[in-house]
Design a protein around this nucleic acid. Structure first.
Length: 438
RNA sequence: GACCCGUUCGUCUAGUGGUUAGGACACCGGGUUUUCAUCCCGGCAACAGGGGUUCGAUCCCCCUACGGGUCGCCA
């Protein structure tokens, strides 16, 4: 049974999709799906001077990336078409006339203004509860510019009436605007929808998150090689929780559990660390073939070529449990991509400070040179035997060896890494390191 | 300035008129992986302040402080 719930996400295409906007879209989408209702995507492009086609595309791309799908919108149509405000001129004119006939408007320097009744208004907000505006002092609001184009507050209300929106779920920054909107509904003799004002997302320091701030643009997540499932999950937790300790939710699970009544009332600070952790968790649990495939697509997009890497898929697989996001991959792939190893100076010092590291590497080199098989198991056996002979613990060999093979203190599991690097490369690099140490 | 919203560990948050105020991230310590950025275990750490109401308040009410939002011919 389809419900009559109709919600909308109404972005203005003036830039990329903001993380706050993405979460607003997410909550709208979840509510629509949870209730079996309809999600409308409406493009609020009434300010021609500020809107661009690129921004429009970026917003669509961001939503699709998060797998937020809509039922009605500029690209898919619907019963209340068109869904771009720039194409709804006649509708606004019609509503405008109604206000004009009722004597609600007057002209001011060519623009048209709506006389604010400034009567008390009470909102029963689904998130904030009952909010009363008693002592209102709003100035008359402009609803049409001198050039004939309409202003946000007006078109937003008209469209919500026309598109039969039942629930307006939007950022809390609109809570203070709501009385003005209610005045318009009253002027049109229309019943206002239910409102749900969701808290904002702030920066680490509590300031308002804006354009340049880290994590603000959805593009950062796309470019950074995040898993959309992880980002969606993290965003969901910024302002909503199921009331218990669970915090990882599959897409279907979110839909089932989501409820506006459980949305928080206070603002949340954005924590990139936790977002990265969430992403790492998702990468870790991803089926390996999917991880590899996703990584390959990502690397191709960044223009990094694995042409000269033998067994590239196995190499990528090595890093699944080591990275937080795919953007870390190009850097980490270094030892596989370049002939010469880039030496981490601190790691070099650490190896230097270990007594006998050079001798151990020499012994290791000899052992490796005589090996026929070159697989993780054989390598492990050879290393342990060498350690035994030298009277040291295997651990004493592993760090110098890792450093020799990759130039770095960290990396994937040692033996599989050596195996994939290949015998020639590893031996060559051990020799270089020995000379570096002497 | 006026109006509106908010305030539990550093961060995201759970929670109830009586709890050792719980979980997660981060951080610190230990263990495993005889490497490591994974993993496991442990630890640190919070009810903004002041008045009420009450036998009893983190929870209910008021005030203050602080934070955020709105007051555009931006959305």
């Amino acid at each position: 049974m389809p419900s009559s719930t109709r919600v909308r996400f109404a972005p203005s295409p003036t830039g990329y999709l903001h993380v706050g906007g993405a979460r607003t879209a997410l909550f709208n989408w979840l509510y629509a799906r949870h209730t079996g209702g309809t999600l409308v995507l409406r493009v609020e492009d009434t300010d021609a001077a500020r809107n661009t086609a690129e921004a429009n595309e970026a917003i669509f791309e961001g939503l699709r990336w998060l797998e937020i799908d809509w039922d009605e919108g500029p690209d898919v149509g619907g019963d209340f078409s068109p869904y771009r405000q720039s194409e709804r001129r006649e509708i606004y004119d019609r509503y405008f006339s109604r206000l004009e006939e009722k004597g609600c408007l007057y002209e001011d320097e060519g623009a048209m203004r709506f006389r604010m009744p400034n009567q008390p208004v009470e909102i029963d907000d689904l998130v904030c509860g009952e909010v009363r505006f008693e002592d209102r002092q709003d100035p008359d609001m402009t609803i049409r510019r001198a050039d004939g184009s309409y202003i946000f507050h007006f078109v937003s209300v008209v469209d919500d009436i026309e598109m039969q929106i039942s629930h307006v779920i939007r950022g809390e920054d609109h809570l203070s605007n709501t009385p003005k909107h209610i005045d318009l509904y009253r002027a049109f003799d229309a019943a206002p929808p239910r409102f749900a004002h969701i808290p904002l997302i702030l920066n680490q320091d509590g300031s308002k998150m804006s354009k340049r701030d880290q994590g603000a643009s959805m593009q950062e997540y796309i470019d950074g090689g995040y898993d959309p499932d992880a980002v969606r999950n993290y965003l969901l937790l910024l302002g909503w929780n199921p009331g218990d300790d669970r915090e990882k939710f599959r897409r279907e699970e979110m839909i089932e559990l989501f409820d506006l009544g459980k949305v928080n009332r206070s603002h949340a600070r954005f924590d990139l660390e936790k977002c990265l952790w969430m992403n790492q968790q998702y990468l870790l649990k991803m089926p390996t073939p999917k991880f590899v495939k996703t990584a390959v697509v990502y690397l191709e997009k960044t223009g990094l070529s694995l042409e000269h890497v033998s067994r590239p898929l196995e190499v990528i697989e090595l890093f699944q449990e080591k990275i937080h996001r795919l953007a870390e991959l190009p850097e980490m792939l270094g030892p596989f991509l370049q002939d010469e190893v880039e030496v981490d100076p601190q790691a070099l010092e650490k190896v230097r400070s270990r007594e006998g590291a050079g001798d151990l590497l020499t012994a290791l080199n000899a052992a490796f040179e005589s090996m026929d098989a070159w697989d993780p198991e054989s390598l492990e056996t050879a290393l342990k035997a060498t350690a035994d002979e030298a009277g040291v613990k295997p651990g004493a060999l592993m760090f110098p060896l890792r450093f020799a093979a990759s130039g770095r203190p960290h990396g994937p599991d040692l033996y599989p890494m050596l195996a994939l690097l290949g015998k020639d490369t590893v031996i060559k690099r051990i020799k270089v390191t020995i000379s570096l140490l002497s």
